[in-house]
Design a binder for these strands. Structure first.
Lengths: 343, 343
DNA sequence: TTTTATAATGCAAACGATTACGTAAACGAT
DNA sequence: ATCGTTTACGTAATCGTTTGCATTATAAAA
């Protein structure tokens, strides 16, 4: 009743030849005469033969699949990274398995263990916000499982990395505000565990210093969580306490949008007497009114680059035995209405 | 040099027992004495043993992984579906492999072929816009590979399906506009190949009919592609040609936002003299100004439901041999500024 | 003591593909 | 006729687990 899958053996029996011959014929080995190769292929097609990857992978110790571990997926930037990963993987005939850690360290460790069981040839990892220990990553190195870190940097671990130039991106964003004439620029960010956050903060400080603006620790606000509402509340409070603040650099677009809403609510004119810049270039940012100036992060490119690096490492282990490149992708400032006062 | 992976054999040799015993001990079979089981497990842990899934899957013909085929991923609604899939799969200890068809029929077929090679136990499929033929899906049935269709419905194919109630959703959205006093409601949609689009169009017509409003084919616009710009252009033209139009039901939030922009540009007041409703509840919709009334689609729930159905079908093939359920998820109208005129 | 039941373990054959090695036939060169 | 090559294929081991069917030891029953 239940139709069995067609195996090499079935083809072999129909043609009265050996399984080995069928295998070789299908993979175009020259040792098999052209005539027979043709016959085998024709019959395979006719019988809808599909190779059993489980078996061939067990034998060859190769999977043609890579695992991806990310903190969350409902997030435009992350979705664009995944998109890049899928594209690049597809180009190289690799399949992609995704696991979401939900920013929980434990889930991250579990995912890595799960992927360490031979179902993938390598791993693409974006560590969670909670990840402070790295023994699970070192375990991977010891088990000889190639992996590449992306987006979030963990400086202590020795592995290929692909990150965005947060420092320069933030620096440019804040310099732009300064050039537009804003004098008292606040910075809203999430907790500082995150490496990117730290870099963006540094960029912010550098820009102030470069232009001889005083840095005021009260103008750096650390939000408990990243959301429009949270940011709106914080900015309202900030503007009541320090009314002289005339611009905000938000660490994400969500935060920047919250800032816009708060400023509008308090009667500020954007960009005339209040400027806002965000980070990431979510689709929202071009649609809100006023449209949001933001730092574009090349998500798709990051996905592609990380995947390319991983596949190279998988297919050429010796070559990458000791020198692990860190690719730093350039951001791009997209100037829109929220910060551009024509002079 | 290169450290070998630890196998059952390695553990067996260290303990001077057979491989079979180790295998059974690790899987908690009662035939093995508790004492020995303990010893084996301890040593396995000590040696960092990770079972080789390739081998065990080959033997058991079971993968604990499912394949997902979607048209694209950078799309909030789709990302939320994926998120639901990943959650549910994770709960049942399944892994998820994703393939993107980019709305190309050929890529969809290729993906299905690829997944038919035993690397997944079942498939979750959201067909592309271009998919008119279904032989590739029938092939799956014949090859005994369980699959579930989600989001996009193809009525001709016999399989479990999970869809959203587009008809009722659209009906409710348009009725809401009517109740708010809008009289000349236009509808903007994409090409009609899509089943959902057709259902939403029907809902639109039904609402008009129910409230004795005349249907005017000129007020149903078919866009070449879905984007804010495309929609803005179309709506501008529409409003110039038919100035009496006072509301728009857009088939997605993008289209609705384009409509808002066009209406504002032409000096219409929203919601006073112009109403707009979208479909999907993207994050954007609550942030634009005026905020957008829209029909919420339960993406995460759809992902979870489809996955649950698939896993049931995988683990209980007989039970689902002939009766394939179609789950229709309820939408929910979220009334916001773009359509709510207080009376 | 012999028989029988029970518990605990080993043996070896799968799963389906790949591949090192072996072999038979055909051919040309000596 | 003999030998060496080449061509074209077959044999069988292998990848790491799982599992049906022994097998052995131990205990209980006769």
């Amino acid at each position: 009743m239940k139709k069995q899958r067609v195996r090499l053996k079935d083809i072999a029996e129909r043609l009265n030849i050996s399984v080995a011959t069928v295998s070789r014929a299908l993979r175009n080995r020259i040792e098999i005469s052209e005539e027979l190769r043709g016959k085998v292929k024709a019959l395979a097609k006719e019988m809808y033969y599909q190779p059993n990857f489980m078996a061939s992978h067990l034998r060859t110790q190769k999977n043609f699949s890579i695992g991806v571990i990310i903190p969350r997926i409902i997030h435009q930037y992350m979705a664009s990274i995944i998109s890049g990963i899928l594209e690049e993987a597809n180009d190289h005939h690799y399949q992609v398995m995704i696991s979401v850690s939900e920013h929980l360290y434990e889930k991250e460790v579990k995912a890595i263990e799960m992927f360490s069981s031979g179902i993938v040839d390598g791993l693409l990892i974006c560590v969670s916000n909670q990840t402070k220990y790295i023994s699970h990553l070192e375990q991977l190195s010891q088990n000889n499982i190639p992996f590449v870190l992306f987006d979030k940097d963990i400086s202590r671990i020795d592995a290929p990395k692909v990150v965005v130039d947060d420092y320069t991106g933030a620096l440019g964003a804040v310099e732009h505000l300064i050039e537009q004439g804003y004098k008292h620029i606040a910075h809203l960010q999430d907790n500082l565990i995150n490496h990117s956050s730290q870099k963006r903060l540094k960029g912010y400080y550098s820009a102030l210093k470069k232009h001889n603006l005083q840095k005021n620790p009260d103008l750096v606000i650390e939000l408990a969580s990243i959301s429009i509402e949270e940011s709106r509340k914080a900015v309202e409070e900030l503007l009541r306490t320090y009314p002289f603040v005339d611009a905000i650099f938000g660490i994400t677009d969500e935060i920047a949008i919250g800032a816009i809403q708060a400023a509008l609510k308090l009667g500020r004119k954007i960009p005339e007497d209040f400027g806002v810049v965000g980070f990431s270039n979510w689709q929202i940012s071009s649609v809100v009114s006023p449209s949001l100036t933001t730092v574009y992060q090349p998500g798709t490119e990051m996905g592609r680059t990380a995947t390319k690096l991983l596949i190279q490492r998988i297919e050429n282990p010796e070559k990458f035995a000791d020198n692990f490149p860190t690719k730093i992708l350039k951001t791009k400032l997209l100037v829109r209405e929220s910060s551009y006062r024509k002079k």
